[in-house]
């Protein structure tokens, strides 16, 4: 339908093309100006909260709690950043988050690659069913399995350990990442596997020597996604960890929301500094691996 109407239009309009080209150019120019204005206004609105975090994190709480806004600190309070680590064990919590990340990234990379390889390269009985079930896990809310899981870890005396938070990553990781890696492996020509097979390589060799070296971009994406998931995760650590020294940064950040009874001073300035501290590693990761953030999701077959 659409194509037939456009071809009809094409023959009709060719003659008037030249006379209108000047107006078209004019129109393009105004359009470009409007785009820039829209993008700049929206961009400033998006960037402002980020600026505001930094600016607020460098002020005193008296300055923050005044009825006229201070757009920049009168005297930057760099000591706020040091105070964050004094007020609560924030360094410990950041390290705890990093520890969980250090445990889960290798787990996800190894076991989700294995799963993806299985789904992409072998025709075993029941494959279709398992694959559908795996995709199905993406839409089931975590709360359904959470209660029995919690009871299980409770009985095994594993509450207040990192076992419940990390074991899943060593057992396949998330369905989303498996799917992403499967799509990637499927895009690698099978000829390579078959040539190696004829040379006498077994599937482990093929995976390790041929597939994995080609998967570096996809595996980097998975590592980044895993980092972000764990760094941001609130619910699981909140449920499984109830001893302060074990907290992750995401759970611990809340502690600046409370006004301590001893001093009765608000801690918004520290809260903002802590929020900035939590954001810095992510921004650094983005700066170092920008193309994986932008293209990783896309190239790995999220295209529909």
């Amino acid at each position: 339908m659409a194509t037939s109407s456009t071809t009809a239009g094409r023959t009709q309009n060719v003659t008037i093309d030249r006379t209108t080209s000047a107006t078209i150019r004019q129109r393009q120019r105004t359009q470009r100006t409007i785009t820039y204005i829209l993008l700049t206004v929206a961009g400033l609105m998006f960037a402002f909260p980020l600026y505001w975090t930094i600016s607020s994190s460098l002020q005193t709480w008296q300055e923050l709690r005044s009825f006229t806004p201070h757009f920049y600190p009168t005297a930057p309070q760099w000591s706020n950043y040091a105070d964050v680590f004094q007020a609560v064990p924030f360094a410990r919590w950041l390290l705890n988050s990093l520890l969980i990340i250090a445990i889960t990234i290798p787990g996800t990379i190894i076991t989700s690659t294995m799963t993806a390889y299985s789904f992409a390269r072998f025709n075993f009985v029941g494959k279709g069913l398992w694959f559908v079930l795996m995709l199905g896990t993406m839409m089931i809310p975590a709360t359904v399995t959470l209660i029995p899981q919690y009871l299980l870890w409770f009985k095994l005396k594993m509450i207040n350990t990192y076992v419940p938070l990390t074991i899943g990553s060593w057992l396949g990781g998330s369905a989303f990442m498996i799917f992403l890696l499967r799509q990637f492996i499927m895009s690698i020509p099978r000829d390579l596997d078959e040539a190696a097979l004829i040379d006498g390589a077994n599937p482990f060799h093929i995976l390790w020597r041929i597939i994995v070296p080609l998967m570096k971009p996809a595996l980097t994406t998975v590592a980044i996604l895993q980092f972000l998931n764990e760094w941001n995760d609130f619910f699981a650590p909140f449920i499984y960890l109830n001893r302060q020294p074990l907290y992750t940064a995401a759970v611990g950040l809340r502690y600046f929301q409370y006004i301590p009874l001893e001093t009765n001073d608000p801690r918004d300035h520290l809260l903002m500094a802590a929020a900035a501290i939590m954001t810095i590693p992510v921004i650094a990761l983005f700066a170092a691996a920008q193309r994986y953030f932008i293209s990783g999701v896309v190239l790995s077959g999220l295209k529909l």
């Binding site: 076991t111 799963t115 299985s118 494959k127 398992w130 899943g168 057992l171």
Partner: peptide, 12 residues
């Protein structure tokens, strides 16, 4: 197929 699927299957 099942050997490589094993970790995920146990988790599932």
């Amino acid at each position: 197929g099942y050997l490589f699927l094993a970790p995920w299957l146990i988790g599932f």
